[in-house]
Design a protein around this nucleic acid. Structure first.
Lengths: 131, 131
DNA sequence: TCATCTATATGCAACCTGCATCTAGATGAT
DNA sequence: ATCATCTAGATGCAGGTTGCATATAGATGA
C-alpha cells in the first residue's frame, strides 16, 4: 500500500457545485431520476471527468430539502425502483439565479483572460510590466 | 446573538482556488507582497466580494511549498517588514497550466449556456423538451 | 444459485474558504 | 509618553464540497 494517494483530481476543481445547475436544467426538460441524470450529464462535457454518483444523489437530496424539486418512488420498465425528481416553481427560479451567477463568473473569467493576454503581449514585446 | 450566521457567501462559490492564478499573474508582472497583492486583486473584479487576507496568505504559502514562488523578508518605506514573493520558472509554467485549465472551464461554461439558451428557446416557443 | 447490472445511499478524509482573532511593528494624535 | 490606529502577516475553527470506497437491495441472466 503506497501512502494512499489522496490528492484530489485537479481537473475536478472547477466551478463550485456546477453539477447543480446542470441537474436543474436537465430536470427543466422533464422529470428524471439519479442514474438517468448521471448518463445525461455526459452530454454537458463531463466525458473526461464523469460525475460521481454520490455527488449527484447528494445534490438531488439537498435540492429537495430546499424545495427546489420534489420526488416520488416509481417503478421502471426494469431494474429496481427509482426516485423520480420533478422541478418545482422555486427550482425554476433557482435555475435562473444560477444562470445569472454563472454569467457573472464568466465575466470574471474573461476579465482574467484579457488581463493575461494583455500582460503577456506587453511582456513579450518589450519586457515591461502591465498588471 | 441570532443563531450565528455561518452559511457561506453564495457569491463566493465560483471557481475553485481562482485567486491562485490571479496571484500568479500579478507576480508575473513583478515581485510583491501579501498586502499589496490584496489591493491589486481588486482590479480583477473582486470589488464587490473582496478577497480575504487569510486566503491570500495561505495561497502564497502553498505556492511557496510547491516551489512556484520564493520569498524573502524586506523592509518597506513604512510600516512593518513584508514578505516579498517572486515567481519562479516552475511558477511560470504553473500559471500557463492554470490558464489552459481555465480555458477548459470556460468551454464547459459556454456549453452550459448554449444548452440553456437552446432549451429555453424551444421551451418557450412550443413547449417541447430539448435536453 | 451466483454473478452482474441497476439504483440509491452513506462514511470518510482531504480540501477550500470566510470569519474571528492574534501578534507585532510603525505611525499619528493627544 | 501613551494610546489608538494602520500595516502586515498568520492561525484556528467551523461549515461546505467532493472523490473514493463501500453498502444495500431488487432485477436479470447464465
Amino acid at each position: 500500500m503506497y501512502g494512499r494517494r489522496r490528492t484530489q483530481n485537479r481537473s475536478g476543481r472547477r466551478i463550485n457545485k456546477f453539477l447543480e445547475p446542470c441537474l436543474l436544467l436537465l430536470l427543466h426538460a422533464g422529470e428524471s431520476y439519479g442514474y438517468e441524470l448521471l448518463d445525461n450529464l455526459e452530454r454537458f462535457g463531463f466525458t473526461e471527468n464523469p460525475a460521481d454518483p454520490s455527488t449527484i444523489y447528494r445534490i438531488l437530496r439537498s435540492l429537495e430539502n430546499n424545495s427546489f424539486v420534489t420526488s416520488r418512488w416509481a417503478e421502471g420498465d426494469s431494474g429496481p425502483a427509482r426516485r423520480v425528481y420533478i422541478l418545482s416553481a422555486a427550482g425554476d427560479k433557482y435555475l435562473k439565479l444560477w444562470v445569472s451567477d454563472l454569467e457573472e463568473t464568466d465575466k470574471i473569467l474573461n476579465r482574467f483572460f484579457s488581463k493575461y493576454r494583455n500582460h503577456m503581449q506587453l511582456h513579450h514585446s518589450n519586457g515591461k510590466q502591465s498588471c
